[in-house]
C-alpha cells in the first residue's frame, strides 16, 4: 500500500531523511518510533503530500508523489497533533465543509455516522472552540475518516491529551484500524504503540534502523526493542 525508496529530504543544507526505504502492506498498523528530530513528522508530511521529497520515490495505493498527489490525497486520512478544525464552526459544519472539499455525495448520513463513531453526536451543533482538547482530537479523527480513506497517517495523536482523553482516543483509533485500513502512526508513547500496532519501525537519523512485527517481539516488549535499536 505504501512504497518508499531511497527517500531524501533536505531543508537547505540540513538533510533530514537520508535514503529512507519503507514498505507497508494493506491492513498493517505501523508504529513509527524514534527520538525527537529523527525525521518522523517530515516523513509523514511527505507521505501526506504536504512536503516534496528532495530525492527518491514515494508511491501510495499505486499512485506516485508528488505527480499524482490529488489521487493520493483522496485515499488518505491525516491526523496530527493540530486539530485542523475551525474553532468558529460547529462540529457538523466542520465536517460538512470537509465533505464538500472531498466531493462526498449526500454527506449528511456519513457525517452522522462519523459523529457517532467518535462519540460527539450530542455536541454536533456546538462550536469547536467550546470543545476540550480530547474532543477536538476525536473530531479531528472523524474529519480524517469522513471520506473513508484506505490509508491513515497519525502524527503524535496523543500530544496534549489527559488520561481520560487518551483512553477515549484509544477506542476511536482501534475502531479506525479494525476497519481494514492501513495505518502509520508516530508516537513517543511506547505502551500505546504496543497496544495498537501490528508492526514497529524505528526511525533514527533519517533512516529506518530497525523493524519488527508484533510476533517478532516474542517475549520481549516494544520498549526493549526500541532501546536496543537505538543503542545498536
Amino acid at each position: 500500500m505504501i512504497e518508499v525508496r531511497k527517500l531524501v529530504k533536505r531543508f537547505g543544507l540540513k538533510t533530514v531523511l537520508r535514503g529512507l526505504d519503507f514498505d507497508v502492506q494493506p491492513g498493517e498498523f505501523v508504529a513509527l518510533l524514534g527520538p525527537n528530530g529523527a525525521g518522523k513528522t517530515t516523513f509523514l508530511r511527505i507521505l501526506s503530500s504536504l512536503a516534496r521529497p528532495s530525492l527518491g520515490e514515494v508511491k501510495i495505493a499505486g499512485y506516485r508523489l508528488p505527480g499524482q498527489a490529488a489521487a493520493v490525497r483522496a485515499r488518505l486520512g491525516v491526523v496530527s497533533h493540530m486539530p485542523l478544525l475551525y474553532a468558529d464552526l460547529t462540529a457538523e459544519e466542520n465536517l460538512r465543509f470537509y465533505a464538500r472539499l472531498y466531493g462526498l455525495q449526500n454527506p449528511e448520513p456519513r457525517i452522522a455516522e462519523v459523529l457517532e463513531m467518535v462519540g460527539l453526536e450530542g455536541r454536533r451543533k456546538d462550536l469547536v472552540r467550546t470543545y476540550s482538547r480530547g474532543m477536538q482530537q476525536r473530531l479531528a479523527i472523524g474529519r480524517a475518516v469522513l471520506h473513508d480513506p484506505d490509508v491513515m497517517l497519525f502524527d503524535e495523536p496523543y500530544t496534549g491529551l489527559d488520561q481520560d482523553a487518551s483512553t477515549m482516543l484509544d477506542i476511536v483509533l482501534k475502531s479506525v484500524a479494525s476497519q481494514g485500513r492501513t495505518v502509520v502512526m508516530t508516537s513517543h508513547d511506547l505502551a500505546r504503540a504496543e497496544d495498537l500496532a501490528t508492526r514497529f519501525d524505528v526511525l533514527s537519523h533519517g533512516v529506518i534502523t530497525a523493524s519488527t512485527s508484533r510476533e517478532g517481539l516474542g517475549s520481549s516488549n516494544v520498549l526493549t526493542f526500541y532501546k536496543q535499536s537505538l543503542d545498536a
Binding site: S48, S49, L50, A70, A71, R73, A74, L76, V78, S80, M82, P83, L84, L85, Y86, A87, Y98, L101, Y102, G103, R143
Partner: peptide, 18 residues
Amino acid sequence: AVEKDRGCLDGLLLAPVD
C-alpha cells in the same frame, strides 16, 4: 492566520482538489 493557527491550512492542502 485563521488557517494556519489550528493547522487548517494543512487540512485544506490535504483535500483532493486543485
